[in-house]
Each structure stands twice: as C-alpha cells, then as structure tokens.
C-alpha cells in the first residue's frame, strides 16, 4: 500500500523466478547494460576511418532542414522533389524549421497532393493504380479476415470501417482533378 512505508510483496522469490525464467537476472547489474552510460565515448569510432566523412556529390539541389549548418555529408536520393507536391515540400524546407508546425503541416499536405498526382499520373502512364491489389484486401479472403475479427474483443474494428474512405480519398480527388483539367482544356479551346 502506498499509504504505508513498504512495497507490496512479490508473489515469487528470486530463486523461483530464476528457476522459471531462462536468463532471469543475466543483466541484473544496471551499470553493466549495453546502453549505460547513455553517452559512452567510443575511441574506435565503430569502424569509421575519418573524423568527418567524405562528401557525397550533390548532383541536384537537395532540400535540407534549416536547423542544419550545411547539407549533411551523406544523404538519401530516393525520391527527388517534383511536381506540385515537390514545390510545397521545398517551401516547407526553405521557410520553416522543424520547430514550426507549418513545416510539418505543409509536408503532410504535400504527401496528400503527391498521392493525387501519382494517381492521375498512373492513369496517363501504362500502370494505373489498382485499389484492389495495392491495398492487399485479398488478404481478407486468404487470411481469415472475418474470423480474425468476429466475436473478439478488439478495439480497432470500430475505426477500421473508416479505412476505405482514406483509401478512396485520393482516387476521388484524382478523378475530380482529371474532370476539372478536361473542362479547363475544353474551356480554353472555346476561346
């Protein structure tokens, strides 16, 4: 009881725990655990043979956080910014530090725009997005979709019903954008 000085007793003694659980107490000494002390200087630099790494060439302008002094010596080049989403992302990086909500809200907005751009683009290219195969919903049939949920006390089934709307959102927006673009082009043709 917290109302008196002593901790409630444990159900099992140390000996019982050691007997029941393989490895019990192997890391008992708090000073002898791998992440203690938190800051632990490594003279060997874990295999690095440099104090500052060679710089990866910047073959195209690379966005970076305002909180960095310079472009980091190594960086990812997986998906360079492009299109409207890219323009929004550039603004987020150039104008707002990580400390600003605007930075993250712009990046989230750009992600939604990116998905719409991708769906529109996929219609124009050879590989249209396929909402059935890409969401993997076939797994509902092959991996016990119903019995995994029915009659079980699960907190997530209530909101899983929202998921199809999240999936459909960008498709509806993409269709809207396509219709709008067509009427714009038609309208322009009429002048």
């Amino acid at each position: 009881m917290p109302y008196t000085p002593h901790k409630p007793p444990l159900a099992e003694t140390t000996e019982q725990l050691r007997a029941r659980i393989p490895g019990w107490g192997a890391d008992l000494d708090p000073q002898d655990r791998p992440s203690t002390p938190k800051l632990d200087l490594r003279e060997d630099l874990t295999g690095a043979h440099w104090e500052f790494p060679e710089r990866q060439p910047e073959s195209r302008p690379r966005e970076r956080s305002l909180e960095h002094a310079f472009l980091t010596p190594v960086f990812g080049t997986a998906q360079p910014t492009r299109g409207l989403s890219g323009a929004i992302r550039k603004v987020a990086y150039e104008r707002y530090s990580e400390a600003r909500a605007a930075h993250w809200l712009l990046l989230i907005a750009a992600d939604r725009v990116d998905a719409v751009e991708a769906h529109v683009g996929s219609l124009a290219r050879l590989r249209p997005d396929n909402p059935v195969t890409e969401t993997g919903v076939q797994a509902e049939l092959t991996h016990r979709g119903l019995s995994s949920r029915l009659g079980r006390k699960r907190a997530d089934v209530h909101h899983q019903a929202l998921d199809p709307f999240l999936v459909a959102g960008p498709f509806i927006a993409a269709a809207g954008a396509a219709v709008a673009a067509r009427s714009l082009i038609r309208g322009a043709g009429r002048d």
């Binding site: 800051l39 632990d40 295999g47 970076r64 472009l71 980091t72 010596p73 990812g76």
Partner: peptide, 20 residues
Amino acid sequence: CGSCFYCARGLYSNCHNVNA
C-alpha cells in the same frame, strides 16, 4: 556515420551526418 558527436558516444540512432 560512426564519427559525429553522437555516433562517437554510441548514440547511433541520433547520427547528425546522414539526415539532411
């Protein structure tokens, strides 16, 4: 990277030289 302030102290998950 192994050599930044953080990596040198074992905080590899907080490396300062790899995330622009």
